[in-house]
Design a protein around this nucleic acid. Structure first.
Length: 273
DNA sequence: AAGTGTCCCTGCGAGC
DNA sequence: TGCTCGCAGGGACACT
């Protein structure tokens, strides 16, 4: 499940492989709903002939700046991947294909078909709704936690509160900060809020260093654009570690439900009260 | 305002 | 072996 570190890894990798400056020579959309806006016809017509000028990340969005003032926003959701490869590599679940002028093809591969592309001249309409970037200076984190009375985990997953976190890194951060996911956001002390933000940064940076987390058994859900998979899975402390000893205290990790999401905690380190 | 339920999808593991 | 079934999960949206 691509979260901030996985999206960052994809962006850096595509940039590293020289995607910037390449011209899109043709476009093919195999699953219509992979394109959220505009219509598939317009999407294809507008993209064709444009140059990819830059690529970056905002929250979990891949942001591609194109010639002529257009921007492509790609959200990978559950299973989306972006590969740069030869046309011969094309496989079953490639939903959107951009053929480039150097002979390579940018492939949007998405087995579960939840991923979405948007092509817009005003990306801020979408991006301005996102909360702050956790790896940049975050102002008034404690104050913002106390401005609401929300259950902590769903709040951290809310992209308008803070951008880029998903199920994996929220569980890891809450464990790191020794805070129970069902605590109310306005119950945290200032030192707990500080510890939480530090923990969020720590787990995200570690995820990026490890080139992302690949899950699944054998088949990686997340892969780098060149087909390699991240190695952060081995670095996880609680996520999908149910029944295994907590690396800090040895108590068995438990799996609970918080807001319909499976959640992993150490019942000794993370107390509700 | 905060929380719950439903939908979108496919692959996988469990149970028979 | 081969089938069905339920689950996972980010985000949008309707509803309470």
């Amino acid at each position: 499940m691509p979260e901030l570190p996985e999206v960052e890894t994809v962006v850096l990798s595509l940039r590293d492989q020289g995607i910037c400056g390449r011209r899109i020579s043709s476009v093919a959309v195999h699953w219509m709903r992979s394109v959220q806006e505009p219509s598939v016809e317009e999407f294809t017509r507008i993209l064709k002939g444009r140059t990819i000028q830059n690529i970056s990340r905002r929250g979990k969005f891949v942001v591609m700046g194109l010639s002529g003032g257009w921007t492509a926003l790609v959200h990978l959701r559950m299973s989306g991947r972006l590969f740069l490869g030869r046309p011969a590599d094309i496989t079953k679940h490639d939903q959107v294909l951009l053929k480039l002028d150097d002979g390579r093809t940018l492939r949007f591969h998405d087995t579960r078909k939840f991923g979405r592309w948007r092509l817009t001249q005003d990306p801020e309409t979408v991006l301005s709704k996102l909360g702050p970037e956790p790896l940049e200076p975050v102002r008034d984190f404690h104050k913002r936690l106390h401005a609401k009375s929300r259950i902590l985990k769903p709040l951290l997953l809310d992209q308008t509160f803070i951008a880029g976190l998903g199920n994996i890194y929220v569980d890891e951060a809450l464990w790191e900060a020794k805070i129970h996911p069902q605590r109310k956001s306005d119950s945290l002390t200032t030192s707990e809020s500080d510890a939480l933000l530090k923990a969020v940064r720590k787990v995200l940076k570690k995820g990026i260093r490890n080139l992302g987390t690949s899950l699944g058994h054998g088949k990686a859900n997340f892969q780098l654009p060149d087909g390699e998979s991240g190695r952060n899975r081995e670095a996880l402390n609680v996520f999908r570690q149910t029944g295994l000893p907590c690396p800090r205290c040895g108590t068995n990790i438990e799996r609970i439900k918080v807001g319909q999401r499976s959640t992993h905690i150490c019942p000794s380190c993370q107390r509700k009260h």
